[in-house]
């Protein structure tokens, strides 16, 4: 039975892979969280704008607020990768 020995190269490659997975999860999960937050705010914003056109700007602003979550995820991913 052959014994697998982890060389430095293998360890480095594994670490890089794990970092990439971490970065992907950071962006992916925060993206999901943003979408969950945005769907309800978006629906309410569309409803409010349909009743009062002046609400468009404010509605849009509220809808994009959860984008900050995914931006945090992106920043973490970039910090992990570079």
């Amino acid at each position: 039975m052959a014994v697998e020995v982890m060389t430095v190269e293998v360890a480095e490659a594994t670490a890089k892979g794990l970092v990439a997975i971490g970065a992907g999860l950071a962006v992916g999960l925060t993206g999901l969280a943003t979408s969950i937050a945005q769907f309800s705010i978006g629906a309410a914003a569309v409803g409010a704008t349909a009743e009062n056109k002046d609400m468009f700007g404010l509605g849009l602003l509220f809808t994009v607020l959860p984008e900050t979550i995914v931006i945090f995820g992106l920043v973490v991913a970039l910090l992990l990768l570079f």
Partner: peptide, 16 residues
């Protein structure tokens, strides 16, 4: 779905 309820409820609240 939930979005329809949110949309309709918001419109009704504005009307109210």
């Amino acid at each position: 779905g939930p979005a329809s309820y949110i949309y309709a409820a918001t419109r009704m609240r504005v009307r109210k």
